[in-house]
């Protein structure tokens, strides 16, 4: 059996707004195995993005423990957490978040600037990542010159270029048409199967969720049921 990569125990995130306490995530227990592909579903406001952000290390839990790869995330300083993110996490956004003034190539190169690599090593990695997502011929184009689907593929190249163990994706197909969404899902499946990336994906589309190994449902900050999707 594959060892557990992500371990949430009693995980909670509370916001205080005036006298009011908002708890988008409450007493959540979750184990994610290495190489798993997990789909997170649930109504709007159920805490899906909140959970993703905690696992991606861009937010901090207010209760419970979150251990990833044996590292207790909430114990890291801000700087150490940033370094950890840049090594372990690839984040794919719904709205791509490419830098408009950088070319596709430069956008993908961006996360590598945080690593000790020569210009040549960087070039090789960027070229590999762009080829993998199928936009190598667009590497000198700016985001405004790309279609939404191409932008998202560049964003996926950016997420995998540092070879992180975990990829989190928040509604990665939310802004795409059916064909482009299918291409993106196909890519994610390949990343999971061929490169054994552990993937957590938030989606509203059961069709997309069907590509995952299993689907979790969140409701009011709690996991309500979990099913094992049939493996292909």
């Amino acid at each position: 059996m594959t060892p557990t990569l992500i371990e949430c125990r009693g995980l909670a995130r509370t916001y205080r707004r005036g006298p009011e306490l908002i708890t988008p995530l409450d007493q959540l227990d979750l184990d994610v195995d290495r190489g798993d592909f997990l789909a997170l579903m649930g109504p709007s406001g159920s805490g899906k993005t909140t959970l993703l952000n905690l696992i991606a290390g861009i937010d901090r839990p207010t209760g419970g423990t979150l251990t990833i790869g044996g590292v207790e995330i909430s114990g890291l300083s801000n700087g150490a957490l940033a370094d950890w993110r840049s090594a372990e996490i690839g984040y794919i956004f719904q709205l791509y978040n490419l830098v408009p003034v950088l070319t596709a190539y430069e956008n993908v190169e961006l996360p590598l600037l945080l690593h000790k690599l020569s210009r040549r090593e960087r070039h090789e990695r960027v070229a590999t990542a762009l080829a993998l997502v199928g936009v190598a011929d667009r590497s000198s184009h700016y985001p405004r010159q790309l279609s939404g689907g191409q932008e998202q593929r560049v964003a996926i190249a950016r997420a995998i270029v540092t070879d992180p163990a975990i990829i989190v994706a928040d509604e990665p197909t939310g802004d795409l048409d059916r064909a482009a969404a299918a291409a993106v899902m196909e890519l994610l499946v390949r990343l999971n199967r061929e490169m054994s990336k552990t993937i957590l994906m938030v989606t509203h589309d059961p069709g997309c969720a069907a590509h995952a190994n299993r689907t979790l449902h969140l409701e009011k900050g709690r996991l309500v049921e979990s099913g094992l999707a049939a493996a292909h």
Partner: peptide, 13 residues
């Protein structure tokens, strides 16, 4: 702001 959030998400301080 969103772009800057993305940069920090990547690990830029």
């Amino acid at each position: 702001v969103r772009e800057i959030g993305m940069l920090r998400c990547l690990g830029f301080r």
